[in-house]
Structures are given as structure tokens and as C-alpha cells.
């Protein structure tokens, strides 16, 4: 069961050691902390980090980013660095104090959309409480000073991605053109496809915690909460069990049963099932 998904970008500057004396992009860092914090509050048994990389596949090496590849003056980890997105995802989990199980999943920059979506769809395992930490960046061509210089199409592209996430319309991510994404240096494209494959059927409710391009690269931070019946039931019973007296629990469970019947009676298409 997927308990939730956090979407974060992967600029190396998220790594505090890399940006020197001044705290760079504090709002972005805070938003990533918040998204990962919410992910972990669902008490997942495993967190799957999904990150774009040169090639698809599970990453079995260490997840720890080696900062010395970006800043030689900083002592390295002494081992090969994982792909940037995987390494930064691992760092965010470390910063949140997460000590549980992790799975590191790379997805190739040039992977076909159908492959990415399938990868996402096959992640879910009903017997395991699984959280997704999806790492992906918008266009690196958002301004004149952007790494890729200004492309006038970049803003609309990132805006559509944000709209799809914000409204939970994850199917729309699959309609973002791969060639355009490549032209716009939107390296998050394959990760968005995986996210879409994993969560679109669950009709998630999303909250965007950061959206902007302070350095000319589109950064989007969001937390997505799946609205499936099973997820809601699991949440309800766990909340009820810890918070309420036995009498109140009975009352609430009755209310929940009524709510679920109402939810079930809604047209299936509208619930995305």
C-alpha cells in the first residue's frame, strides 16, 4: 500500500555543505523537509527513492552522495557517488532521521514513458506500507541566467506539471512531451512518469509546498496523499486506535462505515477507480 509520495527537486545546492557560508534557498530546503516529514509521519515500512539517472534499474550501491565530486575541497565519502537524484533523496531521508528500509530506484533520462509508467504501477505492494520519495526537476531554462539560458516555452511547461500535481491530475503528466522536456533540460520528466504510474489510479490529494525557479531551474516540492479506500481505512483505524476511547472508537467506526458507503456509491469514474 502506498501511504504517500513526496516530490522534491535535486539541485546539489540542497546539500548544505556545498553552498558555502550562507544558507542558500532556505524556503526550498524547508519545503523539502516538510514534504519528507509528512511522508515519514505515515510510518512507512519502506521508502522508495525514485530518481532520474543515466540508466534505469535498482541502485544497489551506497545511497550517500559524495559531495567532493561537486566540491573537491570537501572530504569525499571515498566511494562512488550514486546518481545525483538518488543521493539527494537519501540525504533528505538522512536529514529527517529516517532509519528504516529504503529502496533506491533509478529511472533513465531517455526511458520511454510507457516503461516509466509501468515501473510506477508495479511498485505498489498491498502487504507493505510503502512511501515514495520522487526526485525530479523542472526546466533548467527558466531565465536568462539559467544554466540552459532562457527558453520561452519553459515556464508553461513547468506550470502544466505543477497544475497536474496540484490538482492530483497525475494522468496529465503522461502527456508532457519527452522531446520538449529534453529540450528544456527538465530532468525530472522520467520520475514524473513513474509518479504518475504509481499514484494516478489512487486519485491523490496534493499540496504544493514550493514552486519557483530562483536560479532559473524549476523546483517543485509537493506532498501527495492517496485517497484510495484502503488507505483511508488504514489511516482511520490507526488514528482511532491511538487517539480515542473505546466508546468513541465505536461511534467513529460507524461514521466511517457510513462515509465509505457514501464514497462507494459515487460514480466509479469520478473516483478514478
Amino acid at each position: 500500500m502506498i501511504t504517500g509520495a513526496a516530490l522534491c527537486p535535486s539541485p546539489p545546492l540542497l546539500c548544505p555543505e556545498l553552498t558555502g557560508g550562507r544558507a542558500v534557498a532556505p524556503e526550498l530546503r524547508a519545503a523539502c523537509r516538510e514534504a519528507v516529514g509528512r511522508l515519514l509521519r505515515e510510518d512507512p515500512e519502506v521508502v522508495v527513492i525514485i530518481g532520474p539517472a543515466a540508466a534505469s534499474g535498482p541502485w544497489f550501491g551506497g545511497g550517500r552522495l559524495n559531495p567532493s565530486i561537486f566540491a573537491p575541497a570537501i572530504a569525499g565519502t571515498g566511494s562512488d557517488s550514486p546518481p545525483l537524484a538518488i543521493g539527494l533523496g537519501s540525504m533528505l531521508l538522512d536529514q529527517a532521521g529516517y532509519r528504516g528500509r529504503r529502496r533506491l530506484q533509478a529511472v533513465g533520462y531517455d526511458e520511454a514513458a510507457s516503461v516509466c509508467v509501468k515501473l510506477g504501477a508495479e511498485l505498489d505492494d498491498p502487504s507493505v506500507r510503502m512511501a515514495l520519495l520522487v526526485i525530479g526537476d523542472g526546466s533548467a531554462r527558466r531565465s536568462l541566467k539559467a544554466p540552459g539560458y532562457l527558453d520561452p516555452r519553459a515556464e508553461a511547461f513547468d506550470a502544466e506539471c505543477e497544475r497536474a500535481i496540484r490538482t492530483g491530475d497525475l494522468g496529465a503528466l503522461q502527456r508532457l512531451d519527452q522531446t520538449l522536456a529534453r529540450d528544456l533540460m527538465a530532468t525530472g520528466w522520467p520520475a514524473w512518469q513513474v509518479l504518475s504510474g504509481a499514484l494516478a489510479p489512487l486519485n491523490p490529494v496534493a499540496e504544493v509546498l514550493f514552486s519557483g525557479a530562483p536560479f532559473g531551474v524549476g523546483y517543485l516540492v509537493a506532498y501527495l496523499n492517496p485517497c484510495s479506500l484502503s488507505a483511508r481505512e488504514a489511516w482511520l483505524s490507526s488514528a482511532i486506535g491511538t487517539l480515542l476511547s473505546e466508546d468513541d472508537q465505536q461511534t467513529l467506526l460507524k461514521a466511517a462505515a457510513i462515509m465509505n458507503r457514501i464514497a462507494d456509491s459515487r460514480p466509479r469514474q469520478a473516483r478514478g477507480t
Binding site: 539541485p11 546539489p12 565530486i69 561537486f70 573537491p72 557517488s81 545525483l84 533548467a140 539559467a146 544554466p147 540552459g148 539560458y149 533540460m185
Partner: peptide, 13 residues
């Protein structure tokens, strides 16, 4: 006429 974007080197020198 391109800018570096997240460039990384095992050993830049």
C-alpha cells in the same frame, strides 16, 4: 556558449 549544470568530476584536475 553553454553553462555548467550540476557538473561533477571524480577529480577535476
Amino acid at each position: 556558449r553553454t553553462r555548467p549544470f550540476r557538473v561533477a568530476y571524480p577529480d577535476v584536475v
